[in-house]
Simulated assay, not measured.
Amino acid sequence: MESPARPLAQRRRHPLAAARRAWAALPLLAAGLGVAWAGETPPPRGVDAELARQVRELAQAASRTAVPGMRVEIELGELDPRLKLAPCQQVQPYLPTGVRLWGKARIGLRCLQGPTRWNVFLPVTVQVYAPSLVATRALPTGATLEAGDLQLTETDIAADPSPAVRDTVLAVGRTLARPLAAGEALHQRDLRARQWFAAGDTVKVVAQGQGYSVAGEAQAMTPGIEGQVVRVRTENGRVLNGVAVAERQVEVTL
């Protein structure tokens, strides 16, 4: 004969079941974090809204310090769903040493109060909006840029590792190294490097040391391609390595 069921209050709760229920009630950090801007899409499931706010504010503050006056937006990515993080009552976001909040970056998250201390990194995308040059029409490789080919438009200048070109003077007359679609932003990598001088030309050499600089003339031993290392021979026969920086001009660091 079956024994009568005991009242609910008298039933013994299995410790493992209780632990599972407690775990389910905690924010599921391992399920992924996301950010919800006020009035926009709701946060992803399992997100601690307060922690998301702290992460966003940390990234905003650091980015705005680096690029004052520019509009900055932050998108939070997701933690690896395979992570098995222990429950934590206090998670602290922080900026890892050496991390630049520009484009694809990361914010650190560390558990300060819990049975197990852990440290993980949350992917973030930092969007920095500023006026930069975009193509007004489709432009082929080899096209020589004219003023009418470009216009200033607000773009995310952090979206590409190559710096955006933001001054028409730096672009007009230059040759494209690759095609540009209409509306596509112009970056430094899109422009063919200029040859500032040829081998055998006499060039001005500016040598810079700590707290001083000297200038003189030398003969170029190799062509001076913009931004590339060039060898020059001074009047006393000394061979120096420098960088071609302008028309018949080389900078040498001593």
Rank of each mutant, 00 (worst) to 15 (best):
P179V: 04
E78R: 15
V126S: 08
V91L: 07
P223R: 04
T125P: 00
E78Y: 12
E50V: 14
R238Y: 09
A147W: 03
G237H: 04
R12V: 15
A52F: 03
V172E: 03
C111F: 11
P131T: 14
E2S: 13
T141E: 11
V230K: 04
Q210A: 14
A24V: 11
A215D: 11
R21A: 09
Q54Y: 00
G211E: 07
V165M: 10
P123W: 00
T234K: 13
E73A: 14
V134Q: 07
P96N: 09
A244C: 12
G108H: 06
Q89G: 11
M221Y: 00
L170V: 05
V243I: 15
R117P: 03
G173S: 02
E73W: 08
E217T: 15
R117I: 03
A135M: 04
W118F: 03
A30F: 07
R110F: 03
P96A: 07
A185T: 12
P7C: 02
R56W: 10
T155V: 15
K104I: 06
D201S: 03
T125F: 10
A9V: 04
R178K: 09
A207C: 06
C111A: 12
Q113S: 13
L58E: 02
A49G: 12
A38T: 06
C111S: 10
T41F: 02
A59E: 00
D149R: 06
G32W: 07
L133Y: 10
A181W: 01
R100W: 05
L26A: 13
R110N: 04
L145G: 03
R189C: 12
G237A: 11
W196L: 05
T144F: 03
W23P: 00
T125V: 13
T125D: 05
K104M: 09
A36W: 01
P115N: 05
V35H: 14
V243K: 13
C88M: 06
G32S: 08
R137A: 14
A185K: 07
L51F: 01
E251P: 05
L28H: 15
L145D: 04
A171I: 03
G103F: 12
L58R: 11
D190P: 02
G32P: 14
G148V: 14
L152C: 02
R174V: 02
G32Q: 08
L28P: 14
V165R: 08
E75N: 06
H187P: 02
R117K: 10
A86V: 04
P96R: 05
E226S: 13
G183F: 00
V67F: 13
M70S: 15
I107D: 10
L109R: 15
T141D: 00
Q228V: 09
T144W: 03
V47C: 11
D160M: 01
L101R: 05
H14Q: 10
P42W: 00
V67N: 08
Q90M: 09
D201C: 00
T153I: 09
D160L: 01
V55G: 06
A143P: 00
E50M: 07
A24K: 14
V252H: 03
A246T: 06
L85G: 01
L112C: 07
A246R: 13
R100N: 10
R71P: 02
L176R: 01
L186S: 01
